[in-house]
């Protein structure tokens, strides 16, 4: 695996919501096959950062280059990148008026122009992969939270993305459902998928991440390998954060 190829390159990124400076001078390189976990207190800008990577949010300064294409107002460029970058949301955001199978085949059929039969076969493969193939005909409202999130992951996978973005995928789940989603994410990581995850699951970060990034007040405070990050944090802010989420 060629870990030297940069697939997401963020340089000098600044973003404001009105007067509020949400992202300050972010520089970040994500290499091919790398698994990155972004953590930090709420309001630190981590979700905004990840949403900038497929331009669900516009940035005002700096550049973001994904797979060699810079994210600008150019709609065609954005759509090309969104085809290559999958995203999983905190609230699943499955389309409630479509069956599970229709959720999975919508984008392959209409964006990738894949024949429906083929798209459905692919979809069933991924549903088996996340172990809910038997739910294909149901509507999202009939599934549990954990099942919905696994469908959402399968939906992202159906576009065969090069990169997967996770925006707090387990935060809206009941405790007993978190594991089933994390298991799927771990198995993806084992297949060398490039992943950027915003999450508070420190167990997941410890076992899977190549690099952990800690953010606060819109800035990257520190980034390190998991061993170093947990055993030897460089900043008092990091220490405080870790003590708050680990010792309970």
């Amino acid at each position: 695996m060629d870990m030297s190829q940069v697939v997401i390159d963020v340089k000098g990124l600044n973003k404001w919501y009105g007067e509020f400076h949400v992202l300050k001078n972010i520089d970040l390189e994500v290499h091919k096959g790398e698994r990155i976990v972004i953590c930090g207190p709420s309001g630190s800008g981590k979700s905004t950062l990840i949403r900038c990577m497929n331009r669900l949010e516009r940035h005002q300064e700096g550049t973001i280059t994904v797979d060699g294409t810079e994210l600008t107002n150019n709609l065609k460029g954005i759509e090309k990148i969104r085809r290559e970058v999958g995203m999983v949301f905190q609230n699943f955001n499955l389309f409630p008026h479509m069956t599970v199978l229709e959720n999975l085949t919508l984008a392959p059929v209409w964006v990738r122009r894949m024949p429906r039969r083929e798209a459905e076969a692919t979809a069933m493969r991924y549903l088996e992969r996340v172990r809910i193939a038997e739910q294909a005909g149901k509507y999202p409202g009939q599934l549990s939270g954990g099942q919905q999130q696994r469908v959402a992951i399968a939906r992202a996978l159906c576009m065969s993305p090069n990169i997967l973005l996770f925006d707090e995928p387990t935060s809206a789940l009941d405790p007993e459902m978190i594991k089933e989603v994390l298991d799927v994410m771990v198995s993806l990581a084992e297949e060398d998928m490039t992943m950027v995850c915003v999450t508070h699951e420190m167990g997941f970060a410890r076992t899977v991440a190549d690099r952990i990034i800690f953010m606060d007040h819109g800035e990257i405070v520190e980034q390190n390998s998991p061993e170093e990050f947990f055993s030897n944090p460089q900043y008092d802010r990091t220490k405080l954060f870790l003590s708050q989420i680990l010792h309970h």
Binding site: E70, T72, N73, N74, L75, G77
Partner: peptide
């Protein structure tokens, strides 16, 4: 890039 932006606004 500038041309693209122009087109998007046009």
């Amino acid at each position: 890039m500038q041309a693209f932006r122009l087109k998007e606004q046009l």
